[in-house]
Design a binder for these strands. Structure first.
Lengths: 215, 215
DNA sequence: ATTGCAGTTAAACAGTTGTTTAATAGACTG
DNA sequence: CAGTCTATTAAACAACTGTTTAACTGCAAT
């Protein structure tokens, strides 16, 4: 049994547990038992619990970087369709309506309570996809936007998607069961969010560009 | 020193601490020290830590119910203005751009990780204001909407506002300092979100009501 | 004066937690 | 073969955590 196997096994086991429990509520005993390694191995390989966590975060980031691929979307497609596809993929990755993989769950946790690895994650992972979204927004707007407006449009869309991920149980309380099943699947939500956002962009653009008279 | 004073003091002291740390990371020793009461008092008055937490949540709810008042908004005002005012107030209550009071901070924590008091909070606190938002949306839409569409429109607005609250530090990483100061104050965000949402509503309505030809 | 109750308290308790220690075994090198 | 290094391990350690216990005080009622 070589060192890569034990160390690797700890990493792979710790990920889902940290994702489920968060850092504070996860014990090194739970991890060691689940990984079937001795308790002291964690300190041997990682130094302490916090450093294990940081390594797990980095592993989650590295694992996700190659997977949240939007290459399935043809870039010559109309921007409306681009946006809807982007939203659908984002909702799925966030785990709306399905169980998210632990990497994304962990990244969302880190996102909400930024720790020492956060800056890195943002640059390596979130920014490329946010830039992609901003490009879609540029095409939808069809006029030059100030940086601030452009960012705010991006955040407006991300906020809608995140809401379904973060407040899922609460949202569930406001929606009847039948209604939920018919109207709140991932595709339906993606359609709604995309439509809403397209309208939102048009409204903000028409306000931001006084020389364009749309009425 | 009567019992109301000690019990009350524990409650008032525990609130901000639970809000800052969350339930798991808050120790009864921290609370008892901060409240300057004996450790055993917490068990004496509340039975255990979990029950103290539930009482604190209820106190936060009761404290907020009377305070998130939208009565400053004249109900005969145009719906556009109603919406913008609603958003501005909501952002402020969520603590966007300012330090939230501990009650709202605690309620948001509960919102993200629903516990045993959650159903009650939703009914007592969130639903009334959500219903108010839905009425504003009705007026903006100006046609009858299905329940699902109506709810989704409401969630789209709430999601945008919550995003600024929950992901504030991450958002801050995407925005230049100057830009942040000029364009991301509460009033600016409220204007953006309101405009975006008005446009979004119009777009969704025009899709949801095929007999309305807007082009 | 005695008893009962409520409130307060320090200490003790039992369990939990992350970390450290020291021993052991295996592999490799000179 | 001896020494060194790495990996593994059980036990111990020290601190922390929520809870319980028993003693004490003050007050009110009899």
């Amino acid at each position: 049994m070589n060192d890569e196997s034990t160390k690797e096994r700890i990493l792979l086991t710790a990920g889902p547990i940290f994702a489920k429990n968060g850092f504070q509520a996860t014990t090194v005993r739970e991890i060691s038992e689940a990984a079937d390694v001795n308790l002291a191995s964690i300190n041997y390989y990682f130094g302490d619990k916090q450093r294990l966590y940081v390594e797990v975060i980095k592993a989650a980031r590295d694992n996700q970087s190659g997977q949240m691929s939007f290459s399935a979307i043809p870039s010559e497609a109309p921007p409306n369709m681009l946006l809807e596809k982007f939203v659908a993929i984002l909702l799925r990755k966030l785990g709306v309506g399905i169980e998210p993989d632990w990497q994304m769950q962990l990244l969302v946790r880190e996102f909400l309570h930024p720790g020492e690895a956060c800056q890195e994650i943002v640059e390596a992972y979130f920014r490329p996809y946010f830039e992609m979204l901003l490009k879609i927004i540029d095409r939808l707007a069809n006029v030059p936007l100030t940086s601030a407006v452009r960012l705010q449009l991006g955040f407006s869309l991300i906020g809608q998607c995140l809401h379904y991920r973060l407040a899922g149980p609460i949202i569930h309380m406001f929606v009847e069961k039948v209604e939920w099943e018919e109207n709140f699947g991932t595709e339906e939500l993606a359609r709604h969010i995309a439509q809403f956002t397209i309208g939102g962009i048009a409204a903000v653009v028409s306000r931001a560009e006084p020389t364009v008279n749309r009425n």
